[in-house]
Amino acid sequence: MNIFRLFGDLSHLAAIAILLLKIWKTRSCAGVSGKTQLLFAVCFITRYIDLFLHFVSLYNTEKVMKLIYISASVFTCYLIFFKFKATYDGNHDSMRAEFLIVPAAGLACLINTKFDAIEILWTFSIYLEAVAILPQLFLISKTGEAETITSHYLFAQGSYRALYILNWIYRYHYESHVDTIAIVAGVVQTILYCDFFYLYITKVVKGQKIVLPA
């Protein structure tokens, strides 16, 4: 474990907590893409499938984190699609998730470390996570704005994988550890946030709201 990975995971936890709090406090999921949250839930379940395959001793923090990620993302989907369904902006959350899931699944079968079920699921989860935020960014471009709290969520979510890139550089240098698939997908994922990062740094930090087109 290194500082980058630690802050990356904390940033990821913060993102999940911010979104949950926003939906729970405002009792509304306006401006939130349900599809992105569904894709994240699929990513966690397919990536941490080992939790379901054999009992894991919960004293291990990593296992606890995995359970938190899975339960929090499923609960977020429950809030969006059931509890606060009336506030779900389905018309603007219109990016076809199949256009993200099918290519990720196909690519996972073509480019992977080992052709076995667990490894293919893990690879699928990595590829899917790289593009999972697209419905959310698409929704913001359709509505033309993002609530400040949603901007903070996106900033934390984007920062998590950006910090992981620093973690991979660190691990390459000190542990000569390289996970090419995760690195390439992580770089693609972070690049997708660049436009948002620019808006966040230039607008939200100054207390303004993000309104598109910028």
């Binding site: 990821h12 984190m65 893990w122 996970d179 995760a182």
Partner: peptide, 10 residues
């Protein structure tokens, strides 16, 4: 097989 590639990150 100990060379089993373990993904040790979340």
């Amino acid at each position: 097989n100990d060379h089993e590639f373990k993904h040790d990150e979340l």
